[in-house]
Design a protein around this nucleic acid. Structure first.
Lengths: 189, 189
DNA sequence: TAGCTTGCTGACCGTTGCTCAGCAAGCCGA
DNA sequence: TCGGCTTGCTGAGCAACGGTCAGCAAGCTA
């Protein structure tokens, strides 16, 4: 600890600060995360943080984007699998994710969604990307109606899984199957 | 204007402050609403606001609750109608509501959802109440599984309608019918 | 050694949430 | 009319926060 280098390269320091934000995110609503606290944890002055991030918003956006990237990577379809198995696989990974992180996940999703417009924007981007990736993974036609339904289905899934984790009202397999069935019914029309 | 009474009764003043908050809510994310601004609009000192509301949180909660009450009242089932017409009526009113308020509604819903735990709590209460009222209005059995599905359906509806208002991807009637059909399918099981 | 780049800090500023002692408006009994 | 009570209301002031800025100093090179 005491032997840690006092001076880091710009890239290292930036990464460290974002990492600290990611650590704090599960326990702290995004906007209650103070610059003071982050700087204290990093063992640096507030001023240095402002050297790397133009503003608090800028820092939050970076942290939120990093969190979103982790989730996206986790949910990404596994190449090589047939289209009809992708949905089940992604759903399974999603439920597993929420099971693992519970409140942390909710805090992230909801916290990102509202809070402030700039963070909401990152969240929006992520959703859009997930819709994109799912549409191609499931190999269904791409039109506005389907996109909207898919997005709404994500909202449904997000909400249902959050509730289910807290109070399982059906078997896990049943939950996944229900969501998968709903998805195909909505998209096949 | 100049003739307005300088001293109001406690109840009047409280109501006035909440009303100002409600006015500001559509254009301002909940937490960007500063005490200074509210006090300025009310023509009083900041200190007085803290006399009526123990803290900023307390004030926000009161405002959010007031907003939620307006929405709840608007969506409430019309007594006397048969159960199977209630869903269509409530959905119609909901879509109309979102059509009218658009971003304001989104700002409220999302803004309330995240932001801060205490406001989220009010939002949670409101959702719970809507689930309750809908279950009885539709006259379906009340169990955990149905409650969770209904809540998730609300999330779906909220999201889909928000998107649809921005970019109508189907006829209005079709939208309402899709939502109503999904609801009955989910609850009848 | 001098000189450069650059990671880094301390002191400072305006704003915001919040406190507190106390003023004063309006109603009372005398 | 006067004193006294309640209570709506204010101004000064504090601590914490986001953000700025001049300048120190670590580490490389010549």
């Amino acid at each position: 600890m005491a032997g840690a280098p006092r001076r880091r390269s710009a890239g290292d320091r930036r990464a460290q600060l974002v990492a600290i934000g990611l650590e704090l995110l599960p326990t702290t609503p995004v906007q209650e995360l103070t610059i003071d606290e982050v700087a204290r944890r990093a063992g640096i002055s507030r001023s240095l943080l402002f050297h790397y991030f133009a503003s608090k918003r800028d820092y939050y956006t970076a942290v939120t984007r990093a969190a979103a990237d982790v989730l996206r990577e986790h949910l990404a379809p596994r190449p090589g699998l047939p289209a009809d198995e992708q949905a089940a696989g992604m759903l399974d990974r999603y439920v597993g994710w929420v099971e693992t992180y519970r409140d942390a996940h909710l805090a992230f999703v909801r916290g990102a969604a509202a809070g402030d417009p700039w963070v909401a924007e990152v969240y929006e981007e992520t959703r859009e990307a997930l819709v994109e990736v799912t549409l191609t993974a499931l190999d269904v036609p791409d039109d506005t109606r389907r996109r909207q339904l898919l997005r709404a289905w994500f909202a449904f899934t997000e909400d249902l899984v959050s509730q289910w984790v807290r109070e399982p009202s059906m078997a896990r397999a049943e939950l996944v199957e229900l969501l998968r069935g709903l998805l195909t019914r909505l998209l096949d029309d």
